[in-house]
């Protein structure tokens, strides 16, 4: 089947411009709220351990996705805000495709004493160095400036 008439006049309008405007307020959730509230007052992270399979969730979760059990209060514990780089990339453009003034190193950091990881900016003097497995620590905002979001972690740096 083909349309019996085609649009061949290049001066006739063919597109309509618009957006899908809506703003969002994402609550951190029950586990997330506890994690961020702890981070607002401390320089350490929180994690949770599954009572059945002993997997350590970071960021902490309310439940184990494998055993599908709830993680009780006593299985929450503090871990240092440190870890080792599992994956990394050197970004030269931002999320809109614009060139960055300086390359930015983004890494996935395995948090110590947990089975989880966190995405973060890695500050380094030599962006071209091998970063795989390198141990880093989080640099946090001053306590009075923290707001309870991921932005409270400024970046990670080599120890």
């Amino acid at each position: 089947m083909t349309f019996l008439e085609k649009q061949t006049d290049p001066t006739s309008p063919m597109h309509w411009r618009g957006n899908m405007q809506a703003d969002y307020l994402y609550l951190s959730g029950v586990a997330g709220d506890k994690f961020f509230k702890h981070l607002m007052k401390n320089d350490t992270f929180l994690a949770t351990k599954c009572p059945e399979c002993n997997k350590v969730f970071f960021p902490p979760r309310l439940y184990c996705e494998d055993c599908f059990c709830e993680i009780p209060e006593e299985k929450w514990f503090e871990v240092p805000s440190k870890g080792s780089i599992k994956l990394f990339t050197i970004a030269t453009i931002d999320s809109y495709g614009k060139k960055l003034k300086e390359p930015k190193v983004i890494g996935l950091i395995n948090i110590d004493q947990t089975d989880g990881s966190l995405l973060g900016v890695i500050k380094t003097d030599k962006p071209d160095e091998e970063l795989q497995g390198v141990h880093v620590e989080a640099v946090l905002k001053p306590k009075d400036k923290r707001e309870g979001t991921l932005k409270d972690i400024l970046y990670f740096k080599k120890k």
Binding site: L27, G29, V30, Y63, F68
Partner: peptide
């Protein structure tokens, strides 16, 4: 109107009850 739980956490609570 607003619950504190994330969508994942709400899914867990409903699923757990059904199980």
């Amino acid at each position: 109107r607003i619950l504190q739980e994330t969508g994942k956490e709400l899914s867990f609570l409903a699923t757990k009850m059904a199980m």
